[in-house]
């Protein structure tokens, strides 16, 4: 049982990278299909649809960031002590969950919004600025989750439990 702390902390870090990564991969893939459809018909729209395709990719980066910070805090990266109590390990696990779940779901939701925006740009290229805003709104919630996970992970390290 004395090693379960590090296990849960690592599980949290993995989930953060894994679930956000899955969400982003699905999202970028779906948006990529729509982008390919538009570029097939009108190659001049490549740069515009590429930006919209990449929007759901940020969640994967956020998940990776949380995983890196957690690994650093628990001493698995950059050296230091890896002696972690079960309670602290569970706390790290809980801290990673906002990014894991919100990352997965928001990336898929953002992809749907991106696909709609790609269709908008396909018909009205001059509305690109507005088209960007709709999927970008979904990003807000991924950023909120990222903030909570970062603050929690840093906060746990200062606890003496």
């Amino acid at each position: 049982m004395e090693n379960m702390g590090i296990f849960f902390a690592l599980l949290g870090a993995s989930c953060s990278a894994l679930m956000s990564g899955i969400g982003s991969a699905l999202g970028v893939g779906k948006a990529g299909q729509a982008a390919s459809g538009v570029v097939t018909e009108d190659p001049s729209k490549f740069s515009k649809v590429l930006i919209l395709q990449l929007l759901p990719g940020t969640q994967g980066i956020y998940g990776l960031l949380i995983a890196f910070i957690t690994l650093t805090q628990i001493g698995l990266m950059g050296g230091g002590s890896s002696d972690l109590s079960l309670t602290k390990g569970l706390l790290y696990f809980a801290a990673c969950m906002p990014m894991a779940f919100v990352g997965l779901i928001s990336a898929i939701a953002q992809a749907n919004a991106s696909i709609s925006s790609i269709a908008l740009v396909a018909k009205k290229p001059d509305q690109f600025g507005k088209a960007m805003i709709f999927p970008a709104m979904v990003e807000t919630y991924a950023i909120l989750a990222l903030l909570i996970s970062i603050l929690s992970v840093f906060g746990i390290s200062s606890l003496s439990i």
């Binding site: 779906k30 299909q33 729509a34 982008a35 390919s36 459809g37 538009v38 097939t40 018909e41 009108d42 696909i115 790609i118 269709a119 396909a122 018909k123």
Partner: peptide, 14 residues
């Protein structure tokens, strides 16, 4: 998700 590519092309044709 089956017709995302097709739908995008059709919307260009519209």
């Amino acid at each position: 998700n089956s017709y995302i590519y097709a739908d995008a092309r059709i919307h260009v044709h519209e």
